[in-house]
Nucleic acid binder design. Structure first.
Length: 300
DNA sequence: CAGCTAACCTATTCACAGT
DNA sequence: ACTGTGAATAGGTTAGCTG
């Protein structure tokens, strides 16, 4: 196939032929950390990926691929469960705004992790992301201009103590206050990590023996939370538990067609949803002033 | 050999700058 | 308003690894 000639920048050029990058075998601990981060945020921005990549001893691009594949896997599982989760016909950047989470529990517009435009949303500090060090500047990661208090995660990211997310605040008001019955999440098991409900990077297991080609900088690293420092979500427990509702119970991500809930969100349409603006441009840090107009949820 | 999944390709969508 | 560019993402594919 042509990819041998046109493969991306991650592949090496040998004899004018792009070689497919060698398949990486992630260690168990790496996968667990990644999985935990995925439960926190399915769409980590560049800084998060970079932080995590450095912590795990991987490349940022590898993490980009991993999250992409992980989302694809989740979507595939949902399709098998006949649980459409987004408006058909939307792909690319706009498509991600139809979150892989229940609409009723999706990030509240204006909350730090609601999509802030330009392909990123800000995640809450508690959780795996919060334990990561701040990213170092890169050529294409210029200093940011933060759009406001809700965007001010960089400071706290730097200040975040390494192990553990710290105390998790009470669930935000929202889901429980939305009138009408909310169908419960389907109890679907994740084939990779067992019941999804429960995994938040807790104690990282001992290094697995075997032919793990990748050294495991995680173990003993700063990312490792102390034993029990990250609570495990009990199945059916109240969630979200993160400050801004991204600490989704994995089960909840296998939610029936959220579009059924759209009418319930109408009251927000002109108010909260109008804050679905992009004040943060991921790559160059500029403020996006073109997103001040209200956008409908379906448009996302 | 089947299943899983990292790596990759392609299309889509959006933000933004330049004209 | 229109166009070009860059970036993020989804869908799909290829191929390596493992049971």
């Amino acid at each position: 196939r042509s990819f041998l000639l046109t493969a991306g920048p991650s592949s090496a050029l040998v004899n004018n032929v792009r070689q497919r990058q060698e398949r990486t075998v992630y260690t168990e601990s790496q996968q667990k950390v990644l999985e935990g981060c995925f439960q926190e945020d399915q769409y980590p921005n560049y800084d998060k990926r970079l932080n995590l990549a450095e912590t795990l001893g991987l490349k940022e691009q590898q993490l980009q691929v991993w999250f992409k594949n992980r989302r694809a896997k989740l979507a595939r599982v949902r399709r098998l469960q006949q649980q459409p989760q987004r408006v058909p016909g939307r792909r690319g950047r706009g498509a991600r705004a139809a979150p892989l989470v229940p609409a009723a529990f999706a990030p509240v517009p204006g909350s730090p992790e609601f999509p802030q435009g330009r392909g990123s949303w800000i995640s809450p500090q508690p959780g795996p992301w919060g334990v990561l060090p701040a990213a170092e500047a890169k050529i294409y990661s210029l200093p940011r201009t933060w759009g406001g208090p809700e965007c001010g995660t960089q400071e706290s990211l730097k200040a975040a103590p390494c192990p553990g997310p710290g105390p998790i605040p009470a669930p935000i008001p929202g889901p429980a206050q939305i009138p009408g019955p909310i169908p419960g999440p389907a109890p679907i098991l994740d084939p990779m990590s067992g019941p999804l409900s429960g995994w938040i990077p807790g104690p990282i297991p001992a290094p697995i023996s075997g032919p793990g080609p990748v050294p495991d900088p995680v173990l003993g690293g700063a990312l490792m939370p102390g034993p029990g420092s990250l609570p495990t979500l009990a199945p059916g427990a109240l969630w979200p538990q993160s400050q801004y509702a991204s600490n989704l119970s994995p089960d909840s991500q296998l939610f029936p067609d959220f579009t059924e809930l759209l009418p319930l969100l109408d009251p927000f349409e002109e108010s909260s949803l109008s804050t679905m603006t992009s004040q943060y441009k991921e790559e160059d840090g500029s403020v996006d002033k073109n997103h001040s107009s209200p956008r409908s949820l379906l448009d996302l």
